[in-house]
Nucleic acid binder design. Structure first.
Lengths: 237, 237
DNA sequence: CGTGTTATTGAGTAGCATCAATAATTGTGG
DNA sequence: CCACAATTATTGATGCTACTCAATAACACG
């Protein structure tokens, strides 16, 4: 099922260390993290990193590529609960009940660093700053989810898309890109599923944003022409 | 502003210990928890436990009463992000960035146990099972939020209310009540804000559920007449 | 007992969904 | 590498859900 090309490496020399798990850790702590994160795993496009119901054993840091997480309802319909880019953590949903509640799927050929949860617990037991750090990562996940609740509960289609595109832009910028031009790794349907909209509405709304001169979009190739206006739209009605 | 009637007490003798923070802890660990949770605080109806922007110092276990948490947008509109009953934890939103992102407001005269976060970190550093336990509590918060995302992203008004009422019922049952009859502590507007609906829609939908014989509701007094059908409605289209 | 808050109900409407047809793109097997 | 199938995206016409506006009623509080 899943390809298991696993490679041993470490965090302290990783070029993502300013974005990812190691953020803000001292050299000594980094050394501990290196011991913890010793395995990488490739996940090719469309492949699943874990499924809902799987036993929870590890969390994952996206080393390269993009993922989506999705929850499937009892009816079989499913909803995207998030998109994860390099440096972001996947799998925290499993901690609550020792098994995953969502699937994680690669949107392009990707690679993750595997962080065995039991060992993370061990080591953060010994190094308090690592513990604090991990708590913060979980806390940010909670904040992020609550912001999505806000979006889904009270924004209109145009606002939702403006907020979504702004968020993508900011995350790209944090990764050293311009944040002005980017390639969408997800389909319109996946965007819609995440934003609580149908694919036709996503398509129409993107067209409208383009007509209004806020963005330029051709297939997956996106340019944010007036980012300020886009952000304003997302927050001010 | 806030009344600070604080009382010293402990978890090991608390009648909520099967619902609350102590769930599943051994006597030894309970002893540690007692040391941690030594202060209670009363919050009268309408009063605020903490505000968005406040420095994060503690999390809180609801000892008695009911709270809501709400996020305020830049426009000044706000959205309810959760309702907390006895034994449930409030304030985890503060961990991510060391300050709260939501307000917590008492919906009736209430009381919380104050759990200083720094000391929680200290003690879970020493007692691994406490650390694991706390991680699980945070993990469940993430799961809960993602389920709300699902509700907001893909359910219709009737389903949302059915899911909401079912959830209230289950939580009441977990607290030793029948789960059939209960008093709503929140207004229709607060319910609507939580479910992403307007007050008129909440009112109309409750009336419809009553006409269909699923519930009986008079003001805040609610009886679930056919809980199975209600749950079925919440999950099966 | 009066005032402000909360809730209900009706009429009309806006926004998004649905249904449908077509186009563009991607992936696949020969 | 091309042809065909499957997937993804766009656009239009129509319908339905939930919102808005408005009036009234019921209740909570001082």
């Amino acid at each position: 099922m899943t390809s298991l090309a696993e490679v041993h490496l470490n965090c302290s020399t990783c070029n993502l260390k300013d974005l990812c798990m190691p953020v803000g850790l001292s050299p000594v702590e980094l050394e501990q993290l290196d011991e913890l994160v010793s395995v990488r795993r490739k996940v090719i496009k469309g492949e699943v990193l874990f499924n809902a119901g799987d036993d929870f054993s590890s969390i994952y840091a996206v080393r390269a590529g993009t993922f989506k997480t999705r929850i499937t309802t009892q009816e079989g319909t499913d909803q995207v609960t998030g998109f994860q880019m390099t440096g972001e953590i996947i799998g925290l949903d499993g901690i609550g009940n020792n098994n995953h509640i969502c699937d994680a799927v690669a949107l392009e050929d990707s690679e993750v660093c595997v962080i065995p949860y039991a060992r993370l617990d061990d080591i953060s037991q010994q190094f308090r700053s690592l513990q604090t750090h991990f708590h913060r990562i979980m806390g940010r996940e909670i904040v992020k989810d609550q912001n999505v609740m806000l979006l889904l509960g009270s924004m209109r289609a145009e606002q939702r898309l403006a907020a979504f595109l702004s968020s993508l832009s900011e995350r790209q910028r944090a990764r050293g890109f311009s944040g002005r031009e980017m390639v969408l790794r997800m389909t319109r349907e996946e965007i819609g599923s995440y934003l609580g909209l149908k694919i036709e509405t996503v398509s129409r709304t993107l067209t409208k944003l383009q007509k209004d001169g806020l963005i330029q979009i051709t297939q997956r190739q996106l340019t944010l022409l007036r980012l300020d206006d886009l952000k304003h739209l997302a927050t001010h009605l």
